[in-house]
Nucleic acid binder design. Structure first.
Lengths: 175, 175
DNA sequence: AATTTATGGCAGCCATGTTGACATACTTCG
DNA sequence: CGAAGTATGTCAACATGGCTGCCATAAATT
C-alpha cells in the first residue's frame, strides 16, 4: 500500500512551457514520460473504487458491467460484449451475479423477444453512482489546478486515443 | 475485434468551449464522459502492444516489468514491487521468465550484495523499445490535432491523477 | 420446416493477482 | 562472534477474470 510511484528520474528533457513535439529533434526517442504517467494515473484511478467493491465481494468486472448498463439503459447483451470487448462467457459470469443480487434486471425486447434488455435497478444505480463518485472527485482534483480549457483538451486527447472514435465524436481543434 | 466503443449517447451537457467545471451547477452530477473516455483510451492504449507480446508468449505483466527495468537500470527487486504494486510472488513468476529468456539480467549490489540489481539486456532494451514505440505513435497521433500546449496539460492532468506524485514532479499551473 | 440469431450454460484452460510459510545469503548490531 | 534483521527466492494453494469449444433454447426469418 506504499503507493510509491518511483521517481521519474530519467525524465525526458522537456521544458515546462512545451508544446506538442515531445522529444528534442535528436533522434527516434519516445515519449516515455506520458506512457508511464498514463500507467500510474490509470492504476490509481481504477484502484479508487476497489474498497466499495471489496465490501460486496465484487471485482472490477462487476464495476464495468453495472456502469455501462447504468449509462445505457436497455442495452442488449451483445452490445455490452462489444463495449467491453470480452467474451460471452466472461461477461455472463459477472452478469449472472449482478442479476441474482438484484443490481441489474433483464426484460425481453419489445420487438425482438429473444433479446434480453438490461436495466440497472435502483440498487444498481446506487452502486454505479457510488463508484463513479469517487472517480469523479479524483478527476476534478486533477483538473482543478489546470488552466481554463484543460478539461476540453483532456477530453479530446482521450477521445483521440481510442481506436474507433464514436460516431460524431472527436475532435480536431488545432486551428 | 469490432472495437466498437458505443456511442456516448448520454453525453454530459457540456459545451465545446468549456472550462474546468464539468457539469452545470444543477446538482451532484458526475463527469461520466471523462470516466468512460479514460476507460476506452486506456483499454486501447495497452491493447496496442499485445501483438508483439503474443508472438513471444508474454503478457502485459512481462511488458510492465521489462519496461520499468529499462527505464530504471539497476533497479532493486523491492523497488520494482513498489512501482508495480503487486506481490513478490506475482513479480517473481514473470521476472524469472524474463531472466531465463535473456531479457533481463541480475547483478549483485556493489554495496549490499544481498540486492540483485536488475538490468535490461540488449535484447530486453529492444523489446521494451518495440513495445513503447507503438504506444508512442498512438500518443503522438492523439496529441497532434490538439492546440499548442496540449501535451503539457495532459501531462499535468495525468500527474495529478496519481495518488502520491513523484517527488519534484507536478504541477499547479493555473495562475 | 429449416435456418439463423440472441442468449445462456457447462467444462476446462491460462495469466496474473493474492497469502502464508519457509530457505538462503548477507548485513548490522550488541 | 553470535543474534537479529533484511533482500531475495521459492513453494503451495487459492481467486479473479480473461479465453475456447461445444451444446441448448427460444424466437425470428426465410
Amino acid at each position: 500500500m506504499a503507493a510509491i510511484n518511483f521517481s521519474f528520474d530519467a525524465a525526458p528533457p522537456l521544458d515546462e512551457s512545451d508544446a506538442n513535439r515531445p522529444i528534442g529533434s535528436g533522434g527516434g526517442e519516445l515519449d516515455l514520460e506520458l506512457i508511464e504517467l498514463l500507467f500510474f494515473a490509470y492504476r490509481d484511478f481504477v484502484g479508487e473504487a476497489d474498497h466499495i467493491l471489496e465490501a460486496i465481494g465484487y471485482g472490477r468486472a462487476h464495476h464495468r458491467v453495472v456502469y455501462f448498463v447504468m449509462r445505457n439503459p436497455g442495452l442488449r447483451v451483445s452490445d455490452l460484449l462489444d463495449i467491453l470487448q470480452i467474451t460471452k462467457q466472461s461477461l455472463s459470469r459477472v452478469l449472472k451475479q449482478l442479476i441474482d443480487d438484484g443490481y441489474i434486471e433483464q426484460r425481453p425486447g419489445p420487438i425482438d423477444r429473444r433479446e434480453r434488455l438490461l436495466y440497472a435497478t435502483e440498487k444498481g444505480e446506487q452502486l454505479a453512482s457510488d463508484l463513479s463518485a469517487r472517480q469523479h472527485v479524483r478527476l476534478m482534483r486533477a483538473l482543478a489546478p489546470l488552466p481554463q480549457g484543460a478539461r476540453a483538451i483532456v477530453r479530446d486527447f482521450l477521445g483521440n486515443m481510442i481506436d474507433a472514435p464514436a460516431p460524431g465524436a472527436p475532435v480536431d481543434r488545432k486551428g
